[in-house]
Simulated scan of single mutants.
Amino acid sequence: MKLIGSLTSPYVRKVRIVMAEKKLDFQLVLEDVWGSDSILKINPLGKVPCLVMEGQDSITGAMFDSRVIVEYVDTLSPVGKLIPDRGRERCEVRTWEALADGIMDAAILARQERHWPHRTDAQRSTAWADRQLGKVHAGLAAMSQGLGEKAWCSGNHFSLADIAVGCALGWLEFRFPDIHWRESHPNLARHMDKLSQRASFAETVPTA
């Protein structure tokens, strides 16, 4: 398998961590979607991550969107089941993932509004960026409340919920050091520190 992505994308990191936890071999192909349109040959939406099956380098052989990819990857190996098969437990894990992805979605929009080079300062909207960051803070509060003093986000073991949360928190540390979520939500800080000790997290820390 070939995973097309970047070292900074939290969505790509989520897939990489799932692949590592499932002990699956894959080739990581780095792609700068802002500097090249070549990704469009594989994903018409021009986004990463994108998983390409062996021998299928076309849109018809590609799988995109991190949620779709991790759903598929979790079925490839019985090692460390990350998504429950059915019922309320499954919905709970996927809701945690949606919350974490939503925080990242909002934070990325805020960052683009602040820093996208093809927009002048006069064209930037502070109100728009602040609105997105409001979603980030609300999401962090919900995340903290949901975790409470539990050992894991969902159920009694490590799951995709924890991976998604860790990727969101890690990306905020990387791109928004001015959001002091560790001080505001110490339980999230403890959880992140525990996750960071796993090899899958330590080996995928985002770098510029």
Rank of each mutant, 00 (worst) to 15 (best):
H180C: 13
Q132I: 00
L140F: 10
S154K: 00
L195C: 11
E183K: 12
L147D: 01
R90F: 04
H118D: 11
V136E: 02
Q132K: 03
S36E: 02
L82N: 11
S200W: 03
D25C: 01
W171K: 03
V29Q: 15
R88K: 12
V12H: 00
D101Q: 08
R182K: 15
S196Y: 05
H157L: 10
V52Y: 00
T60R: 06
N43M: 04
L169I: 07
M19L: 15
I103A: 06
L109F: 15
W181E: 01
I108V: 15
L160G: 09
I163Q: 03
I39D: 00
M1W: 01
P78L: 10
K81N: 10
T95G: 00
E203M: 13
W128S: 05
P206G: 05
A199G: 00
V48C: 05
C91A: 15
L3K: 03
A138W: 06
V29I: 10
Y11H: 14
P44Q: 05
R198L: 12
V165T: 14
T75C: 09
F174W: 06
A142N: 14
I179T: 06
G139S: 11
E92F: 00
L109G: 02
D162Y: 08
G87E: 14
Y72Q: 10
F176Y: 13
G134S: 11
L99N: 09
I103T: 03
C50L: 04
K194H: 08
I103Q: 02
G134K: 07
L45T: 07
R67G: 12
W181K: 03
L140Y: 02
T207M: 08
M143K: 01
A199W: 04
I17W: 07
C153T: 06
Q145A: 15
F201I: 02
D85C: 01
S200T: 08
M1Y: 04
H137F: 12
R90L: 06
G166W: 05
L160F: 13
H118Q: 15
M53K: 11
A107V: 09
R90D: 08
P49I: 10
L76I: 10
R88N: 13
H185V: 09
D74W: 03
H118W: 15
D74K: 02
L188E: 00
R124V: 10
V93R: 05
V48K: 00
R131W: 12
R175M: 13
M19Q: 06
L147F: 04
M1S: 07
K81G: 14
L7K: 12
Q27L: 06
V68S: 12
R124P: 04
A168V: 09
G35M: 04
A106Y: 12
G146Y: 07
V205C: 08
L133I: 14
L82Y: 11
D32P: 01
H157D: 14
A208Y: 09
D121P: 01
R16I: 03
V68W: 07
P206C: 02
V12G: 03
T60S: 12
A107E: 13
E54V: 11
H157F: 08
D85W: 00
G35F: 06
G148I: 10
V68Q: 11
